[in-house]
Design a protein around this nucleic acid. Structure first.
Lengths: 227, 227
DNA sequence: GAGTGGTCTAGACCACGAG
DNA sequence: TCGTGGTCTAGACCACTCA
């Protein structure tokens, strides 16, 4: 340990954290106002706000400007695997589908010419009235006009690139998470046997409520041909 | 957009960010002291420190207590795939191997009885004198006394659970990263054909310098047997 | 308008690193 | 010892929400 003396901020955060996990502060409840809490703990408001920022980064509380600080409902930890979130009970989804033209990063991702017509589907999943995760799926229109996402008819390969980062301000506000809560960003590209890209997806999974699981089976051929 | 007016903190962070990426502030250089910068920007020290905290969370600067704030060397973005970091040139590794006994989370992970003898190998990879990533590999001693890690003789399956989170204080200090820089935490469990766990690994990859790539080949059998 | 959180100030004091 | 960053204070003022 480098720091022997715990800071006031950490002490207060620890106290509130145990009150939340012990159930003294119930899910959905509003915390006392920040000046009130600061007086209770005998600290200044900035110090108290630093403590709350820690809890927010852990996903324990939700700060709503002008309304107050609220204890989050504990969200079940879901596992993303094989293109799905499991278990997907109790999840409801809003889908907004629009037609866009390929631009920027999408061009090399989908391996299509610029301004190719794409179907963009924005999935926003909810768990118990609060946003859970975000997915944006792009399908080239000229390739598969009739096929729905999640059906994988002729997929030969999917590549999933996984990154950990902090959310953009837009992501943070739509998911109602702290801008300091780590998220799992997955870029998934599926292609058919000819190498054509059939679908590309950008997934945003908040780190406090989602894992990703990848299972690799090593066949004997693979093991033999490895360099 | 919700906030129309950019905060001072963000303005200052933007300015310093462009100075760094444009090369006016070179890698390894020390920034002016915080009181000095605060005077230059005509803000208070807490406000300036908030701006620096943003850059620290992006991995652009490194704060060293008592010494100053330094521009980080830009680290190449490495990709973790199939148990390796690629490209692995210019990476050097320190390995510390000890014998421990199974306890806590390791027991269900390795599926061994409590206090089973394990070989623990702590890998700390460096890129250009600064720590890059962290790996802790556990191998049951009774199973494979002569086999080295990274050789995969009888592996039939590996499961990789990927999580995004903020680093623990220990991880942050050994990797010399901000405690607000998102990391990719991978728990990898490999088992042989009989289902016995051959190896378990915990990997910590800072989000500013590492991706993870997973490639799935969909064989026709898989597509047919999917429920 | 009353109450809430968001931002910022101008200091104070402590802890760390190097000479 | 000196300069550095780390923490904290006690306010001020603004923006948002709701009645």
């Amino acid at each position: 340990m480098v720091t022997v003396v715990p800071s006031l901020r950490d002490t207060i955060a620890d106290d509130l954290r145990t009150q939340i996990t012990a159930g003294h502060l119930k899910a959905g409840a509003r915390l006392p106002s920040e000046p009130r809490l600061a007086a209770d703990y005998k600290v200044s408001t900035p110090t108290l706000r630093n403590a709350l920022a820690l809890l927010q980064a852990e996903g324990l509380i939700e700060k709503l400007h002008g309304k107050g600080n609220f204890v989050r409902h504990p969200l079940r930890r879901l596992t993303y695997t094989g293109g799905h979130l499991t278990p997907d009970t109790d999840l409801h989804v809003t889908i907004r589908t629009t037609n866009v033209r390929a631009r920027g990063d999408l061009i090399p991702l989908l391996k299509v010419p610029s301004r190719t017509l794409l179907t963009e589907s924005l999935y926003l999943t909810y768990q118990r009235e609060s946003p859970h995760s975000l997915a944006c799926i792009y399908v080239p229109q000229n390739l598969t006009p009739a096929e729905l996402p999640w059906c994988r008819p002729g997929w030969a390969e999917t590549r999933e690139t996984v990154t950990a980062r902090l959310p953009t301000p837009e992501e943070a506000s739509t998911l109602r998470i702290s801008s300091t809560l780590a998220i799992l960003a997955i870029t998934r590209v599926s292609s058919d046997a000819t190498g054509r890209v059939v679908e590309a997806a950008r997934l945003v999974l908040p780190g406090d409520r989602a894992n990703a699981l990848f299972i690799t089976h090593h066949t004997t051929e693979e093991r033999g041909t490895e360099e």
